[in-house]
Amino acid sequence: MPELIAWILVFAVAAYACAGGTDYGAGFWDLVAGGAERGDRPRRLIDHAMGPVWEANNVWLIFVLVVMWTGFPTVFQAVFGALWLPLALAAVGLVLRGAGFALRKPARRLARRRFYGAVFAVSSLVTPFFLGAALGGIASGRVAVGTTATADAWANPTSVLAGLLAVAAAAFLGAVFLCSDARRFGAQDLVDYFRRRALGALGAIVVLALIGLPVTHGDARHVWHGLTGGPGLLLVLLAAASALVTAVLLLRRTYRWCRYTAVASVALTVLAWGAAQSPYLLPTSLTVAGAAGAPDTLRWLTIVTVVAIVLIGPALVLLYWMDTHGELEPLTDADTGTGRAPGDPR
């Protein structure tokens, strides 16, 4: 039973990395889109793409916290005790990000729209970085029961690398989805705009992954061994194959399946991390069995998970399907300015 709950937790983290990561990636491209004139059309597309789903994606984060809190209370206490600062910064970024996104559209004054837009965009960079840094601190074995909060727990080579990988993966997912959205709305110039950025983000992931080999070998030995052998290695190879297929599809301008392969590459990477840590939740000090809560609690948590899958799962699938097929919020020619490249004069 503890192993089942642990894998439910890992799958929930993977779901949030893909769903929430796509939104963070859209915010990243909002940040680097340029000035008000140059970045107007990409930002309009980002607003329309995120509008129907950005709040729903946070359901996965809530589920992660609930599973950790009830299923593995010792881990929850250790993680939030040792990593309270990066997690607090991520939480502040999450709140500011939502506020900035919600307030910038109805704001009438240009100065206020710019301010709220900047809050949204910067928070979209800060939040995934600190969430990744927290995971890096766990993977490096710096978090254990009784560990006090220190900068070394999250400001270490593995944490910095994990934070940068989280940002790059989010940017990759965001660009791939925005590329497909632009194609669906007939804005071919925006398709090429985000296609180039998706390939650039994928290149950054490859570079960071290569840098990560010596970093994790020296700083997170248990996870490094797990990623270079057994199920972890298999999942890493599958993730790399999915990323390669995504790159080929983007280069050939075949966009029908690229969203699925991009999501698969990120999800498989998270699952590889989960497999690499096995049998530990806190390498190498606390195993899954040692961290598990009471058997009755785990049993009820499993039942609640099944109920959530049955009741909420279909609704989320329908929401994502309707959003990616343009059934929720249509985009007009005035929004995309079809035929006018980003940065061109009106």
Rank of each mutant, 00 (worst) to 15 (best):
L286P: 03
P231A: 00
G93T: 04
A26V: 11
A6Y: 13
M1E: 04
L190F: 10
A201T: 07
R221W: 04
D181S: 14
N57A: 01
L161C: 09
A209W: 00
P2L: 06
L135T: 13
A315V: 02
R346W: 03
G212L: 07
A276Q: 02
L103N: 06
A201L: 02
A291W: 07
A276I: 01
A220F: 03
V145C: 09
R299N: 08
G326R: 09
G27D: 11
W60K: 03
L319R: 07
W54S: 07
H225R: 15
H48T: 11
R104D: 02
E327D: 14
T127V: 01
M68V: 03
D192G: 14
T254C: 05
P42C: 12
P2D: 06
R112S: 11
F129R: 14
L190S: 01
T297K: 08
S242W: 06
Y16T: 04
V223M: 13
P2W: 08
A175E: 03
H222M: 10
D30E: 15
L318F: 03
D335P: 01
L103H: 07
F130A: 13
Y260V: 08
L331H: 10
T158D: 11
A334N: 06
V10W: 04
P314H: 09
M68Q: 06
D219L: 00
L251S: 02
G21T: 03
L131M: 15
M1A: 12
A315G: 05
L4Q: 08
G35V: 02
L161R: 04
D335N: 05
W154D: 05
I303S: 10
L89W: 02
P314I: 03
W273F: 14
F120P: 00
S159P: 06
S285Q: 08
G274V: 00
V143L: 12
A121I: 08
P157W: 00
A272P: 06
A107S: 14
A341M: 01
L131R: 11
R43A: 01
R38W: 01
A275W: 00
H48W: 00
L271M: 11
S123R: 13
D47M: 07
A121T: 10
L31K: 11
T297M: 12
